[in-house]
Structure formats: C-alpha cells, structure tokens
Design a protein around this nucleic acid. Structure first.
Lengths: 334, 334
DNA sequence: CTTGGCACTCCAGGCTACCGAGTGCTAGCC
DNA sequence: GGCTAGCACTCGGTAGCCTGGAGTGCCAAG
C-alpha cells in the first residue's frame, strides 16, 4: 500500500496525463495542488513508484506515464465517481425524458448517448431473452417449407426466427400449429420451454418442436449495440491500434464475452491487459449492469483508451445504467 | 472524347495508381502494356489530360493522379466489370450456400461478406416494409398502458413496435383487439392499411388505430447495416479523413439517403464529390439494387476510397446482389 | 529526510544538403 | 507533322547535424 505522499503524486500524474497525454515530469507534479514537496523529492518518489510498477518511463529522461497498475490504483482508491458534470447530466436527462419506442431502438440510442457524452466508444448488451416468460407465440407460413415463428416476451422484446419446416404444410394446418403453440407455450421460458402435449400427429408435433427449437436458439444470443466507434480515431495516433480496435468492435461475439467476463469477475472497470482481449490492450472498459426489478436485463459500458477520464466515465455509465433501468421498469410508460 | 492513345494512358494511370497509391510518372506509363510511345510523348499527352481535368498533379514535378473525372471516365469506358476472381467468387458462393436464418441476420452477414471480399466498408439497405402484405398481426399487452404490436409480412420480415395505448385495457379486451386486427388487417399493406370496420366501441377502435399507426411508422424506415468500417483506417492516412468517414458511417440516415440518391440518379457508381456528401468526398460508392421477383427489396453496396479497384468491386457487388436476390426469392429454402 | 544544485541523457525540431523522380521544353529525326 | 532523345529545372523526402529544453539521477548540505 502506498503512503499518503506517493498516493498524492500518483493521483497528480494520472490526472495530468489524462488531460495532456504527454509524459509528466517531476516539476509539474511539484507544483500540483496536494503535493507540498520539492521536485527532487517527487523524483525520488516517482522512482519508487516506477519500481513498484505504478509508473513507467517511455525512455530515460522523459517524464512518467501511468501503467495499467497505476490506473488500477487510481480507480480503486482515488477516483471517487464524483457527480456528473451538469451539461452531461442534462444531456442524459433530456435523452431519457424523450426516449420512446422499442427496446432495441432504445438500446441503440443509448449507445449514441453514451458515445456523445463520454467521447468514447460505447457498448450496450441487451437482455438475453432465455429467461423471459413467453407471452404470446405465433407461427406464420411463408410458402414452401419456410415459416416464421414470433414470440412476444414478458420483457417486451420480440423474438423471431425463420424456421425450416421438416415437412410442407398447408396454411390451415400451420394455423392449427400456431394455435397449439399459443395455447401451451405462454407462461414458460425459452431456455426451458414447457413440453407440449403430443397430439399423436407426427408431422404436427415435429413442426411444433422445430418452432420451439428455433425460438430457443434465437433467444440464446444477446443483442449487442456499439456506438461512437469513430471516436477511436482520435484516441490513438498509431493507425495500427485504431485498426485493431475498430476491428474488434465489429466482432460482436468478442464484445459480449468481454463484457460478461468483466462482470463475472466482479469488476466494473477493466484496464488495459486486465480484460484479456489482446487487441484491446490499449483500452479500458467500464461496464455496469442494468437492473429492472432487481433482475439484470443488460449491460451498458464504454470503451476508451486506458488514458481516459475515469471519474467522468464512471459517473456517466452509472447514471445511464440507472436511468435506463428506471426507464425500462416503467414499462415504457414514462 | 479522348482518342485511343489518351485513353490507354488514362487507363494505365488509373490502374497503376489504384495499386500503388503513389503519383505515377510518365516513365512507368511508357513501359505499361498497351502504351507504345516514349515517355516524352506520354508527358505531352498527360499535360493535355490534366488540362482537360482527367488528371491532377499534387505538385510540380510529381507524377499524376486521377481526378474524380478521370475515375469516372475509367469506370464508364474502361472498366469492364470483368469476372470476379476465383477466390472471391468461391467465398461468395460458400457464403450463400451456407446462409440461413432471418432476413435481418442474412443482410447483416452480407455486409461482412462484402467487407471481407472487397476490403472496403459495405452498406446493405434492407427492404422497406411499407409495401409488403401483412400476413399476420398480433397485439400483446405488457402491463399498464403499454403493449407490443407484431406483424409478420409476406416478405418474411417481422415488424414490431411498442405502442402506448390511449387507454388502459384488460388482457381479455386486448386479446379481442388482437383478434380483430388479425381478422381484418392481413392482406393489406402497411402504407395503406385497410380501414378496419368500426365496432362502435370508442376505446376499442382507438386502440386498434394506435396499433396500426405504430406498425405503419415502424415499417416506414429502412433498416441499414454497415460492415467493415475498420477498413477505412487503412484506406486513408489522414486521420481527419478516417474520422469524418467513420462518423458518417454511423449516421444511418445519411447512408440511406446517399444510397437512394445514387440509385435515383440511375448510377451504380458515385465517385468522390458526385454523391454530394461532403464528408465522403474522398470516397466512392458502388451500389446495386437487389431484386426479388422483379421488385426491389433492398440495396447492397460498398464504400471505399476513390482510389479503389472498380472492376473488382463492381463485380463483387454485382454478384452479391444477384445471389442475394436469388437467395431471397427461394423464400429461404435455399 | 528533504532540497538545491549539477552533470548527464535524450527527444523534438530546425537547418542544410543531397538524391531521385518527374516535368517541360527544344532540337533533331523519321 | 508528329515522335523522341536529351537536358535543365523543380520539388518533395530523407539523412545528417546541431541545438534547446525538459527531464532524470545523484550528491552534498541543511
């Protein structure tokens, strides 16, 4: 653990570096508020902080830069989430006051909101529908052996999937299947759909089963929304880094597991290498689950360079997650 | 109109520049196949081509670069779409052979396919559902005054929208409304929904109307999918350009009107300033409508630097649009 | 333990010189 | 008359050199 003076110095380095993006030297720190010693002393302390892995030097005779570990200490001990600055909070407020429409649309918009407010890329993972209760099901033929199965879930989302029917079926019989599904499926969840009573008609039962299987599959994956990817073009000057990050942002699968992984480890911030996605070592991720009635329905987060304004970003994510949860539990009747 | 020799020189310049990205000088051109004159003659001809606006010089004593006009001539007269190279065509084939699932999913994947094959960003605009015929409708209450209305359309898409009910309604009555909708709406289109027979019950009719209105609204916008945005990081070395382009790619509205606009003008290629989106002056767009049974259901396109391999990109877009149309008219039954 | 002082390091930026690629022009050739 | 070889000239990019400044580490004194 760091003594008070080292702490103050580390804080000053991080804050300075976050705003200037240039290695910071002992003289700047000595002048910083909260540090009452000379630059020589600061130098000594910084040497120690470097040895202990909190700071790094790009080259001899350059200033210091925080390491991942330095940022970690900063967010754990020094970055009181602090109140959101008033402009940002107003922006968030205005957004949620005027938001409306479908869940998917809302999540997508949220992504833009986060990107605008934080100036970083943002990620929103929608609810996995597996555990939501089915309210209504419908199977509609599309000619030939294809059909669409649609389910409305208790959380307001709609799952739909195209089904390849095992056998061709007349409109009329499909309607019967639809009715059968509608009669028996509602009330159960898609990850463990209630067993449908067999009718004795093999084709009929097979179609039912196919429909249910499709729905379950479709409900298993979580929708991901990404916003503000363009901000990454600012964030780094190395083109390679930009490219790697943008590429990764397009791989929804990676994003979902990244977010899930971070949450599983009980973190709300993953800094640099901590999150384990090699292409994103230059980035930090801040995530926060969204709760509705005590149940997690999704996650919001931002992704920016490790050198990001953590207090501000933490506060934004916090507020957005909270407001989004509130918005969703109103059932949209806001 | 250009004489044969100028044509050959212009072609050579464009081709060379497309592959090297560096201004090309008279000596290179003189050695190019199809040009049988000395570099001095080439220089004279290039001076003329520059005067006429087909070529430009970054600075005195540098090689020449094609202008937008030069590219335009190239694609209009010199770029036989040519056959897709075999690896690409195999990739496309494999994709469509194994593609399955919902329309939205398919379009989204198509976006990735195009990006991979062309190494450029790609845009796919989905069908506007306004003119599709309703197959089935359903209204499901979500508690309070909110409900979800879902419609399955003849083209296999599913439209769903959240509705704010004008009055609160019991489950049972909502079911009645749902049944009413299902009884009368199918068969008409969402842009001109059939008038529902009035029941005399004002609340009932109001809820019906609200549901239909929501659906119509939701059907009016065209889904847009973008892929391969990361490739833009390669395409330009000016960070500002990358940023501007990425930003624009996130504005779906701009994309849709860009695509529509280009098609309306009867073009399939818009080069640089031609498309009128200021932020994309450094880009060219290649678009192609997708037809199913003679009707346009969407558009596929790629967006890359003006300096792109037009023959290859044209061929790819052509093939993908054609295969996608074919795929969709099978009704998904491959 | 702190601090002022000092010698040392190293990067960034400005300057010059130079090389090479490319041009435009002109005189001669077919 | 058109083509081409030759030549003088232009100009951007790179390499080398230098210098100024910011920063460090260390030491000796308070």
């Amino acid at each position: 653990m760091l003594d008070e003076r080292k702490t103050a110095i580390l804080r000053a380095v991080v804050q300075e570096y976050i705003t200037t993006a240039a290695p910071v030297g002992s003289t700047h720190i000595a002048n910083a508020p909260g540090v009452k010693v000379s630059s020589a002393t600061v130098r000594n302390e910084m040497a120690v902080l470097e040895q202990e892995g909190y700071l790094a030097q790009p080259h001899t005779s350059a200033g210091r830069i925080p390491t991942d570990r330095g940022y970690r200490f900063f967010v754990d001990h020094l970055a009181a989430p602090g109140p959101l600055d008033s402009q940002a909070s107003q922006q968030v407020g205005a957004f949620f006051d005027s938001a409306h429409g479908r869940l998917e649309e809302l999540l997508h918009q949220t992504t833009n909101l986060l990107a605008q407010v934080t100036h970083h890329a943002s990620v929103v993972v929608g609810p996995r529908s597996e555990t939501a209760v089915v309210r209504s099901v419908q199977l509609v033929g599309l000619g030939g052996r294809s059909a669409t199965v649609v389910a409305v879930l208790s959380n307001g989302t709609v799952e739909n999937e195209q089904v390849e029917l095992p056998v061709e079926m007349s409109e009329v019989r499909l309607s019967a299947v639809s009715a059968h599904l509608q009669a028996h499926l509602p009330g159960s969840t898609l990850d463990a759909p209630r067993d449908l009573p067999a009718t004795g008609d093999r084709d009929f039962d097979a179609v039912c089963a196919a429909a249910v299987r499709s729905l379950a599959k479709s409900a298993a994956d979580e929708p991901v929304y990404v916003g503000g990817a363009a901000s990454m073009a600012h964030a780094f000057d190395a083109v390679d880094t930009v490219r790697a990050v943008l590429n990764t942002l397009e791989q929804q699968f990676v994003l979902v597991s990244l977010v899930r992984d971070v949450l599983n480890r009980g973190l709300s911030v993953a800094i640099g290498a901590e999150h384990g996605v090699a292409q994103l070592v230059a980035c930090s991720v801040i995530v926060k689950p969204v709760y509705v009635d005590g149940e997690q329905v999704g996650t919001v987060g931002v992704l920016g360079p490790t050198r990001m304004d953590y207090p501000q970003a933490l506060a934004t994510v916090e507020v957005v997650s909270e407001r989004l949860g509130r918005r969703l539990s109103d059932g949209g009747s806001n």
